[in-house]
């Protein structure tokens, strides 16, 4: 069986200095994977390079053993919330419908089935009360849920999420994590850029440690250790207690 995601020797550079250097890894199916690393480690860049949103210098990406071009419909993407202007004249349902566009093809309008699907996705993120709310009238957490619902509407097997937990309230964070666990139980693979080291152990069964180079990828209990984290964050990490449950003060 082909792996959901295989990356070989991926290097990305905006200027002379690479942002990502020679990244190679494989992701097994049905895992919830946190991408962790300091600011400027290239976490978002990694996702964008895999999705060909930015050009990479070298490297090969395979999704389900094929090129991304042929597997687009099996991939869902949740960009950072700040990447769009929320004062756009549209409502929550309409944004979620955009998740269906990839399945529609040129010129075709979404039909009743697509609408029902989108409504179901909104329901899954607990947003059925706000279906026709203009998107600028939603709170940050609700906007994030709309983005998640749009990714659900893509009906994918492999998901990339860029900092879905940033700037959301506790209720939304709970709703998101419940959804991620549900996706995992359906055998889907989810990669999440994550910042809060305190919740890593609780949320993810695999982690990927990244700081320009790949420090390590594997089960959380193996990699979420003082040594690995220090290697990833360098001197910028302070650990208050390095016993069984470390409280970590992570610089944001």
């Amino acid at each position: 069986m082909a792996f959901p995601l295989t990356v070989k020797n991926l290097t990305v550079a905006y200027q002379k200095k690479p942002v990502l250097e020679d990244i190679s890894f494989r992701v097994p199916e049905g895992k919830l994977i946190g991408i962790i690393g300091p600011n400027g480690a290239g976490k978002s860049t990694l996702i964008k390079a895999i999705l060909e949103l930015i050009p990479s210098i070298t490297g090969k990406v395979e999704i389900f053993g094929d090129s991304y071009k042929n597997t687009r419909k099996r991939v869902g993407y949740v960009p950072q919330r700040e990447s769009v202007d929320w004062d756009f004249p549209t409502d929550a349902l309409d944004v979620v419908m955009m998740g269906r566009y990839g399945h529609l093809g040129w010129f075709k309008r979404p039909d009743k089935k697509d609408k029902e699907y989108a409504l179901e996705c909104l329901d899954q993120v607990g947003m059925s009360k706000y279906v026709h709310r203009q998107i600028s009238q939603l709170s940050g957490g609700q906007q994030q849920r709309v983005f998640l619902a749009r990714a659900l509407a893509q009906d994918a097997q492999l998901y990339f999420m860029d900092e879905p937990f940033v700037g959301v309230d506790a209720a939304t964070e709970k709703a998101i994590i419940a959804l991620l666990i549900k996706l995992k139980s359906q055998g889907k693979t989810v990669l999440v850029v994550h910042h809060d080291l305190n919740t890593v152990k609780e949320y993810f069964d695999w982690i990927m440690l990244l700081n320009v180079k790949l420090v390590g990828i594997g089960p959380t209990e193996e990699l979420f250790t003082r040594d690995y984290l220090q290697k990833t964050y360098g001197g910028s990490l302070t650990m208050l207690d390095s016993n069984t449950s470390p409280i970590i003060v992570s610089p944001r």
């Binding site: 964008k48 999705l51 060909e52 949103l53 071009k69 687009r72 991939v75 993407y77 960009p79 990447s83 769009v84 202007d85 756009f88 549209t90 944004v95 955009m98 566009y101 990839g102 529609l104 040129w106 010129f107 075709k108 309008r109 979404p110 749009r150 893509q154």
Partner: peptide
Amino acid sequence: FLFFKEFKLLSFDPGFAKGIG
């Protein structure tokens, strides 16, 4: 009118538009 759907997506979220191909 024909490209309404595509123009909408491109105007709202070009990154996502590129992502779905």
